[in-house]
Design a protein around this nucleic acid. Structure first.
Lengths: 219, 219
DNA sequence: TACATGAGTTGACACTGTCTACAAAGCTAT
DNA sequence: ATAGCTTTGTAGACAGTGTCAACTCATGTA
């Protein structure tokens, strides 16, 4: 067992590439990710990453795959209580918080600039996981209401929730908003208002104090 | 007046560049736009476009500016009636139809991959126009209801509508949806259901027949 | 010992955006 | 008319990129 066998360890470079690529994407966005810079930062030749990935898009797909998984985990992170309305709201806020605290990662997932999903199917397995989190939550809501199990109805609700949340966070990060001369209250309180409306549309009572903007959104 | 004065006409090349860039973006996406290919297609040298644009991002900004304007016009296109609920729904469907029939253009506008808006402020003037369309519609709704004019309330509603619509179309174009094993009814009817819910949240009665999926969404 | 394999290196190619220097028109003022 | 200046386009170069091919070299195995 040599102390420094030239190649530090078998899979280190692969992991290091992914880590470095993630760092670059998080700090400067997806379009300025270059495998050559990854290699440069790691102190290896510009071709070394190609020993572990067939192409740049495969690196990207792997980063995206992990981002999806992190996202699904974040949705599931809030501890569950016996108040289904509170749990649903907590999940909504977890969604919003993920999107706002990791904007470039969120855009990576939902920005629509994915490498051809035909060729990178495994990339989207995390998407299924995230959707599953939603479905589970809705199944719980349905059950507690005494409604019969109806997968189609659950899927419809899940799509509605997903689209609402995505719309909310997209708008909050939208450059165009800056040019609209909105009052700070309107801008900052918007997510909370929208979340409450989604809750109303779903029939889960938003158990919030009726204060004007009871709890300011972070950031 | 030479019949062929070498340079066909003064501003032709600038317009031709924009047209060609738009065509490339519409057919192959924003990331494969290259000024060199624009020049090549137009049969001029690779530097010719730089006589009319300081950089690639300026071409992009101009294409985006026009896309925004087209978008605002599309929102305003449906003829107005005396049924405010129908008008609002028509606008919502105009939004959805624009996004679905010109997906790459829509992504260009709201995808979040804009060139630095600090340096390209004029690019977003169309965004203000589009938001203004929404505000006007809401002011009309408020007036017909006899509610007092309240710009903040209007802005809140406008943001809510905008985010809902954006969420809807984003989801309909989302690659991740393809992996989710949804029934065709759920997928295709989703936009209509979501639009109706937005209408309900706004209190504009969706004057639709209660048929299960009364009018299939196009595409 | 001979050989095959995996990991990394080097060099090349075509492509990109952008900088600089150049050429040929047109306009304007003397 | 002629000299100069601006506009429009060209040509060449440079650094950066993804990717292909050929190379080294340590390792594992027959």
């Amino acid at each position: 067992m040599t102390p420094e066998p030239h190649h530090p360890s078998r899979l280190d470079l692969r992991e290091a590439c992914i880590a470095e690529a993630t760092a670059i994407i998080e700090s400067r966005g997806i379009e300025s990710l270059s495998l050559r810079e990854v290699a440069r930062r790691l102190g290896v030749s510009h071709q070394a990453p190609y020993r572990h990935f067939p192409s740049r898009d495969h690196v990207l797909a792997e980063v995206i795959r992990r981002s999806f998984a992190e996202f699904a985990a974040a949705l599931n992170a809030p501890p569950k209580t016996d108040n289904i309305g509170a749990d649903a709201l907590a999940m909504g806020m977890a969604y919003v918080n993920f999107a706002l605290s990791r904007p470039l990662q969120y855009r990576l997932i939902f920005g629509g600039a994915l490498p051809d999903p035909e060729r990178h199917g495994e990339m989207l397995q995390g998407a299924r996981a995230a959707f599953g989190v939603l479905q589970t939550m809705l199944a719980r809501i349905f059950t507690e209401r005494g409604q019969p199990f109806d997968q189609e109805a659950i899927n419809r609700e899940a799509l509605f929730i997903w689209s609402s949340l995505h719309g909310i966070v997209s708008l909050m990060r939208c450059d165009a908003l800056d040019t609209l001369e909105l009052s700070p209250e309107t801008r900052n309180g918007f997510a909370m208002i929208a979340l409450q409306r989604v809750g109303i549309a779903l029939g889960v009572a938003p158990s919030l104090t009726p204060g004007p903007h009871s709890k300011e959104m972070e950031r």
